[in-house]
Design a protein around this nucleic acid. Structure first.
Lengths: 155, 155
DNA sequence: GACGTGTGTAACCTTCACGGTTACATATTC
DNA sequence: GAATATGTAACCGTGAAGGTTACACACGTC
């Protein structure tokens, strides 16, 4: 099964917003951290905004902020906001209905896929953005860094 | 996240083999049930054979058979045999290492993805091919069918 | 051993989704 | 009004995947 990186980008974006407190961050700045094009970021920001996870303002000196505390944003919410399509794919065409298996396999697979999807999202729901941020900022405690001051500024 | 239908095809194929008992089924016949090209089936059969799930013979009047009882084949085995790539995708390029979040997000995401993948496969592992076959063959008990005899032949 | 049957696999095509990019209208702040 | 920043349409290039053709090889039968 292939995969998009929308979810990874979204978690990254939200982690940056969380690390900034209530300070607005522009799509340009976020694109700099994710290392991609600002439009890619804006597309994701729109989805996250529709899902009620962030607030976005237009105009000079504005940007996006989290609409809730990081501890109130679970990863399955981010997943659903950014990955509308299910993780599994059924048959591209209809199977042969003249075959017993072909006639009924689709319903069985739908059931299997649905439960697997639930399991996946449940596991994601066990972590919040605050957990992600904690792990990320643990870097500050790590020894042997040589760019911490600069990194803290450019982050 | 996009998805391939390799897993769906594989479950379908194995369900057909299971429904045939030990009788060999050719890739042509399987292609007829799945409604695709025999080569697509053969590619999957090769993967399933390598995973030790089926036995395949060449030559006239041969075909593939299950190498184990349907109750001994769990869906997560089929998943791993047919979907070598993980279900999640990380960043396509490296994030900006001068950003605190960018420097550490990859490791965090790897951890999240790994646990989600485990949850997904665990859920799949709760069902076997025998469960799938049972649900499929329940069709025979359903009322209002008009093609059961023919279907049983052509299956 | 020759022949028919069926697998294994390479090669190629088409389609499609996705990230990336450009361009521009719109909204907000100063 | 100027500068800044979002929202979105439009397009491109790339890569993955299913589908298809073609053919070499293996097996069983005669």
């Amino acid at each position: 099964m292939a995969a998009s990186c929308r979810f990874a980008f979204a978690v990254h974006i939200l982690a940056v917003l969380a690390s900034k407190g209530g300070q607005g961050v522009t799509s340009d700045a976020l694109a700099g951290s994710v290392n991609t094009n600002p439009v890619v970021i804006r597309r994701l920001l729109t989805a996250l905004n529709r899902a009620g996870l962030i607030d976005t303002k237009k105009g000079a000196g504005s940007g996006s902020t989290l609409s809730r505390a990081p501890g109130e944003i679970s990863l399955d919410e981010i997943y659903r906001a950014t990955e509308p399509a299910p993780a599994f794919a059924a048959h591209p065409h209809k199977p042969n209905v003249r075959c017993l298996v072909g006639r009924n396999i689709t319903a069985v697979l739908d059931s299997v896929f649905a439960s697997a999807q639930v399991a996946l999202e449940d596991e994601l729901g066990r972590r919040t953005l605050a957990d992600v941020l904690t792990t990320v900022t643990d870097d500050l405690a790590k020894p042997g860094r040589k760019t911490s001051a600069r990194a803290r500024k450019s982050a």
